[in-house]
Nucleic acid binder design. Structure first.
Lengths: 190, 190
DNA sequence: AAATACGTTAAAAAATAATTTAATAAAATA
DNA sequence: TATTTTATTAAATTATTTTTTAACGTATTT
């Protein structure tokens, strides 16, 4: 087989290998509500060792520049893509977080914190309102029971929210890896 | 204030309390890609102590029965709603999981398992293909380096996937609560 | 200062997804 | 067995989201 033919086949294999993983990553992100295009953008960036400009992305994904602009901002919002500065270039440059443990911490940790805060506010408001019903002597017993049952359920929900916050913290701080260590890779195993 | 006026005001307060939490839950679920309607359905069921029929849901949410049918199936798919059997009723009856720790285990645990499996398959396929490039003497060094870098990165990704699997397991089994115990509620604190 | 390059916003178009109505299928009752 | 009840599927509609093209604003270069 001719030299450059071999070379070209290798090129295709490498692209196929990357594309396979890119699709899997994008599909995964879709699972958690990240749109396929945004997922594909992150996954594409995952395989780049140099930071990308909006034009690079546009060329890689075959999409418009405004799309890339908004997509990359969403990735910045969930903290898995960072803007990097590089002397010389006028264009903005972006770099994907490649450490999936960091990715996980940002993607889930940040959402859990937001979830906990959001719900704790609602829960507290609801409990206060329900407690007023329980405390009012003129309300009939049936409704009071209903209120009491809701309060009880919401107290459980509250504990869950606090647990979520602690889970997020322990991932943020890395503390969780004491409990669930990252295993050494196969080849490093004795 | 008249008796039944007081009563009616309490009714409104109770509804307001529940609605507040329902909105928060639905908003939370939306954060992870569950559509608002499906989120609202779960949240509504969360406050019911008796199982619901499709007609109950339809009335509660003011939507069509087919919508409820498909929505409730999605909730069953993520294992946070169960069909229950009750003597007498011909209609299907559904009950929401109210323990949010169980909810969490199903919602995230199941997804993480799926994510890990999906990606590990893709990663292994890609590594095998990349290894062929590395092992081929006729390929030029630049492409080999690219392949080697990809392999290294994918090995890290693999470790993350295995870690995710273990995290899912430890939540499924409850083992995680040894590390991150569920705190007693305020009132039970000494 | 004029021209160019770059990123973002706004409006329009295209593509998806959600929802409903209508039709079908399956089960239960009479 | 015919009728009714219930749930699901299919087709059509509506609503939402994504994507693009066009316009704008700002900064940089010449």
């Amino acid at each position: 087989m001719a030299e450059d033919q071999k070379q070209q086949k290798a090129e295709e294999m490498l692209e196929d290998a990357e594309r396979t993983v890119i699709n899997a990553i994008a599909e995964t992100m879709d699972l958690y509500g990240v749109t396929p295009s945004i997922g594909r953008l992150y996954a594409t960036m995952y395989f780049k060792h140099a930071p990308l400009t909006l034009d690079d992305m546009k060329d890689d994904l075959g999409m418009s520049k405004p799309s890339m602009s908004t997509a990359v901002r969403k990735l910045q919002d969930i903290n898995i893509v960072k803007k990097v500065w590089r002397k010389g270039s006028r264009k903005d440059l972006f770099m994907a977080e490649k450490d999936f443990f960091q990715y996980f911490a940002h993607f889930f940790g940040d959402k859990w914190e937001r979830e906990a805060k959001l719900n704790l506010t609602a829960i507290q408001y609801a409990i206060d309102e329900l407690q007023q019903i329980v405390d009012d002597d003129e309300i009939d017993e049936e409704m009071k029971d209903h209120a009491r049952r809701d309060i009880q359920q919401l107290e459980d929900y509250k504990r869950y929210c606090h647990w979520l916050e602690r889970l997020a913290e322990s991932i943020e701080s890395g503390e969780i890896f004491e409990f669930l260590p990252i295993e050494e890779s196969e080849k490093e195993k004795k």
